[in-house]
């Protein structure tokens, strides 16, 4: 697996991006072709991605928007 040239900080990734990268890292480690030093780096990156995903899952709040014409507005649900 080629390492991304300009790697974003894990904290800046969306859940999807982080998960896709994490899966790539696990696949690369499964191949076992990379040098040990790189494997350790991949592991550390993977740990950061796991942390990022976990935090996003934990804190996720459904965002609801209302389409008014062609613009999106925050949608206030009626409280029961």
């Amino acid at each position: 697996m080629a390492k991304a040239k300009s790697q974003k900080l894990a904290e800046e990734l969306t859940y999807e991006e982080a998960l896709v990268e994490l899966e790539g890292i696990v696949a690369a480690l499964e191949e076992g072709e990379n040098p040990l030093e790189e494997a350790i780096q991949l592991f550390e990156r993977g740990q950061a991605l796991v942390k990022r995903c976990g935090a996003l899952l934990e804190s996720a709040q459904l965002k609801v928007q209302k389409l008014v014409g062609e613009t999106l507005e925050d949608f206030e649900e009626e409280s029961e």
């Binding site: 859940y15 998960l19 994490l22 899966e23 890292i25 696990v26 480690l29 499964e30 076992g32 040990l36 494997a39 350790i40 991949l42 592991f43 993977g46 740990q47 796991v50 995903c53 976990g54 899952l57 996720a60």
Partner: peptide, 27 residues
């Protein structure tokens, strides 16, 4: 669901740890 994602994340995370541990012990 979020639970599915949580389970998948746990799985990936333990794969990551296992693979790296076995990689280190192989080395």
């Amino acid at each position: 669901s979020r639970d599915d994602l949580q389970a998948e994340l746990t799985h990936q995370s333990s794969r990551l740890v296992d693979l790296t541990a076995s990689r280190i012990s192989d080395s």
